[in-house]
Design a protein around this nucleic acid. Structure first.
Lengths: 130, 130
DNA sequence: TCGATATATATCGGCAGCCGAGATATTCTG
DNA sequence: CAGAATATCTCGGCTGCCGATATATATCGA
């Protein structure tokens, strides 16, 4: 029963875990770093997300370590997790592309007579979300 | 005080309005069409989103028409709306790219000795969200 | 003609999920 | 020694999505 709608927070947790297993606090820092400071995943959000992702089988507990007296609980992506993240990335890229294309269309409609011939970005009308 | 975190529903409403003004029900159909049936914006979601977007100044009421005895309330994007949608599309594309790149990194780490030299997708570590 | 479906608006209550705040504990830094 | 950083986790409030419902007209097939 996986594949409910993936939330933004879940997407970034999966992304942070995509290259290697990480523990909660490490995920927090990694999300901030990989988004160049744009996305700040909050502590209060994290554990709920982790629980849901584990329940959905997208991540599993990899191992537990005690580093310098502090417990670290490492999680890693499952195969389903990789697939779900990949699919979501695809959907996002498609959505972003659709938005960009339509913005251009909107500008063309209002634009002051553009002489430059527009290359056909998409053939049909619904030319490219999925 | 615009620019709170844009929700998925809001993103798709803005995208549907990006090429031309549309009325509520038309937005519903357009979102479904532009996403090739993948995204179904619900009626119960729509009007709340419309209100919030209008309050944030991202859309405005364009005009009201009575077509075949039925009221149609058309909305259109403001300049802020176009900018917000554009920025969000950029963020999504960057996020999708980051996820894809990291999935590839993860595979490389587990892969059975890949001989094909990997082209340097990104220079730095945080090489490309924003 | 009658019922179903499509078009079109809008509200409401339940539930999921994000986040600020706080609890707890250790280590590092000034 | 104090405060920040590292590390875990819980809870309550607020926002937002969605199913259900209400209302009304037009269209279309049986």
């Amino acid at each position: 029963m996986a594949s409910r709608n993936m939330t933004r927070a879940a997407f970034f947790v999966l992304t942070a875990l995509a290259d290697q297993p990480r523990h909660g606090y490490g995920i927090l820092r990694e999300v901030e770093e990989l988004s160049d400071g744009e996305v700040q995943l909050r502590v209060g959000t994290l554990y709920g997300v982790l629980d849901r992702l584990a329940a959905d089988g997208l991540i599993v507990l990899d191992r537990e370590e005690v580093q310098q007296g502090r417990l670290r609980r490492y999680y890693r992506l499952t195969e389903d997790g990789v697939a779900a993240l990949d699919a979501e990335a695809e959907r996002m890229a498609a959505g972003a592309g659709a938005a960009k294309r339509r913005i251009a269309e909107g500008r063309r409609a209002t634009a002051p007579a553009d002489t430059t011939p527009q290359p056909p970005t998409a053939p049909g009308l619904a030319g490219g979300f999925a």
